[in-house]
C-alpha cells in the first residue's frame, strides 16, 4: 500500500505517495522530478546515482526511499547556488572533466563528499574517492585534475 512520505532534498521538503519497494533513485527521478541522479547499472556498481545523505556519499539505487525519511539528502541539483556553479562543478566544466556527462552528477557528488571530509586529499585519495564512479569517456584524468584543483 502506498504511504505518504516526506523527503528533505537540497533543503526543501517534498511529499510523495509511494509503495515501500521504491528506491530513493526512483522517487527522486519520478516523484520529485529531479532527474540529475542517473540510473547506470541498477545494482550498485557504477555510481551514477550517487547522492549525499547526512554527509556521506551513497547510492540512491540501493537506498529505500522510506529509509531516507528524516535525512538530509543532497543531489546534484542542490549544488549550484544563486545561479552560480559550485566550485567542483565549475572545475569539472573548466578542466574538461565532462564528456557525455552521464556519470558526471554521481562523480561530482562523490567528489563533494570526499572534499567535505578531507579538504586536502592526495591524488591517491582522490582516485580512491571516485573509484565507485565508473566513467567510460574521460579515462578519469581530467576528473581527478578537476577535483585536485578544487581542493587547492
Amino acid at each position: 500500500m502506498k504511504q505518504l512520505i516526506e523527503l528533505k532534498v537540497n533543503g526543501e521538503s517534498y511529499e510523495a505517495a509511494i509503495d515501500p519497494h521504491r528506491t530513493l533513485l526512483e522517487v527522486l527521478r519520478e516523484n520529485v522530478g529531479m532527474t540529475g541522479s542517473k540510473e547506470g547499472c541498477d545494482l550498485g556498481a557504477c555510481g551514477a546515482c550517487t547522492v549525499i545523505i547526512d554527509g556521506k556519499a551513497v547510492l540512491a539505487c540501493l537506498t529505500l526511499a522510506l529509509d531516507a525519511r528524516g535525512k538530509e539528502i543532497t543531489t546534484i541539483e542542490g549544488l549550484a547556488k544563486d545561479g552560480k556553479l559550485h566550485p567542483l562543478q565549475q572545475n569539472f566544466v573548466d578542466y574538461g572533466a565532462i564528456q557525455c556527462g552521464f556519470c558526471t552528477p554521481g562523480a561530482i557528488m562523490s567528489a563533494k563528499a570526499l572534499l567535505d571530509e578531507n579538504p586536502k586529499p592526495t591524488v591517491a585519495e582522490i582516485k580512491r574517492g571516485v573509484s565507485g564512479n565508473l566513467c567510460r569517456c574521460t579515462g578519469y584524468t581530467k576528473i581527478i585534475e578537476a577535483i585536485e584543483v578544487t581542493a587547492k
Binding site: G36, K38, E77, L85, Q89, V93, D94, G101
Partner: peptide, 23 residues
C-alpha cells in the same frame, strides 16, 4: 585554443536531459 564545451554547465548541474529523463 582550449575551449570549455558548450554543453558542460548543463551537464554539471544535472539539468541536461537524456533520453530517459523526459517526464
Amino acid at each position: 585554443k582550449r575551449q570549455v564545451r558548450t554543453d558542460s554547465a548543463v551537464k554539471a548541474t544535472g539539468a541536461a536531459k537524456f533520453a530517459g529523463d523526459f517526464l
